[in-house]
Nucleic acid binder design. Structure first.
Lengths: 250, 250
DNA sequence: GACTGAAAATGATTGACTATGACCGAAAAT
DNA sequence: ATTTTCGGTCATAGTCAATCATTTTCAGTC
């Protein structure tokens, strides 16, 4: 049986049953545990199901978030981002006043957040929506919306940021480089990131491995201005810096 | 049984019964007390229920949300609302600067909008999202989000409204009454509606038949401050007013 | 078309890890 | 004061990822 055939069958079974164990799958597909496990790992990385201890469950989305998630689906380095996001989410503690930047990395972070007694400020429409639905306290910045990222930008947002003093801030980035700092392709968004970061007591940048060493067009912070959270680096050039956290890839 | 399966079952039971004891759950799921306790702790952390001594209770909806659920209300008088929304949408012309209030009536209006050279300002997250996805220019007000309606409220939004001068504004309402004007159950939202309407050159209120003659707790405008758009009235008491438009059903 | 070596997929094995249920002293409710 | 519930600990059973041997696949060669 072809791998893709199994993938299709497993996906179908999971969609239909909502959850399934490894043992069940071995019986239904007449193949070994090892293979099923490998398949589940692969499908999980492809975001076609959620691998859990003992088996897998379907990806269920609360219907309003469906199309928003579609864009995120064909995202790169999903697994890495989720690990980084989990680590970042655990940094939020009781009574924190948190800034959440727009972007896919911070989106995964929203899914992991547990702290309900914190207050969140964001410029991302989808984040605000997810957060409010999960019962968190949320402030949204005001201003024009950028179509491609559905993030609030503009002078008004910059102005309102000035009055906040965040205990922690979490940012996405397109490039991390020791010399060129944190960079992103859009100037309007860079301005927001820069301003927001200045208002943060602790600033964290979520950077999966594809961002390391990259340089994009607009700098929003120096490398030493924030703590970079990334997965284990194979490159040693950054190891000597103490503002970089390496999360172990689960 | 997979942990997620148990989570789902427990959540369902709690939702349905509103409260449940640990003992009941051990019997219903045929598992040990320890496991149930661990599950409840996990689910509590996930915000899927509230763990209490002896068991768990469902997450109760915001009491202020008593003005009927967004989802439920959206389904009332759908056909009427759509007709009204279509009429309202056609009022938007090239170069208009439009304020769009939160609510289900204006939501249907978003679906009907055709004018792309207008600029829209709204306090509703979902409207902003729909509009931007349809390629319109959108400004979102900033501030805290009200959970039940997912609308921006608060002083910040009021402040930023002051500087706008809308050519047209479209509002939802809970009650229309000649003597008591336009009313709505939530004070914070009433303030926003009031301020926004003051900035409008032309203000329209979308009111399906269930709203006519109703009086809710907070007034946000006098009856003569806006043009009410409704379906054909069978009651003649309002006919003499010239600020009421009756759209023919269908 | 058959042979061959490299690459990929599979299944078995294993030590490490995780979830579970029983137990028990502490905490809370009555 | 008594009973119930709680949360931590522990042994056990179940599950996992990594490794390795075997089989399958496939391109290149004769």
């Amino acid at each position: 049986m072809l791998a893709e055939e199994r993938f299709a069958k497993i996906t179908e079974i999971v969609e239909q049953k909502k959850s399934v164990t490894v043992l069940e799958l071995t019986q239904l597909l007449g193949t070994s545990e090892s293979t099923i496990r490998r398949d589940l790992t692969a499908l999980h990385k492809m975001n076609r199901l959620i691998k859990v201890h003992g088996g897998a469950t379907a990806i269920e989305m609360d219907y309003a978030t469906k199309d928003a998630d579609f864009a995120v689906r064909k995202d790169m380095n999903v697994e890495e981002k989720k690990v980084i996001a989990k680590y970042a989410a655990d940094l939020v503690k009781n009574n924190d006043f948190v800034y959440l930047d727009a972007g896919s990395s911070t989106d995964y972070m929203v899914d992991c957040l547990e702290e309900r007694d914190a207050v969140y400020v964001t410029n991302a429409i989808s984040h605000a929506q997810k957060l409010i639905r999960r019962g968190f306290k949320v402030y949204l910045l005001g201003g024009p919306i950028k179509k491609s990222t559905e993030a609030i930008i503009g002078v008004e947002a910059l102005k309102s940021l000035e009055k906040y003093n965040f205990t922690k801030g979490f940012f996405g980035t397109n490039g991390v480089d020791i010399k060129h700092g944190f960079t992103t392709p859009d100037n309007a968004e860079a301005l927001i990131k820069k301003q927001a970061m200045e208002q943060c007591h602790e600033a964290y940048v979520l950077a999966d491995s594809s961002k390391i060493g990259q340089i994009s067009s607009v700098k929003f912070a120096e490398f030493e201005d924030a703590v970079a959270i990334t997965v284990s680096l194979h490159d040693d050039t950054m190891k000597k810096y103490n503002n970089i956290v390496e999360v172990n890839e689960k």
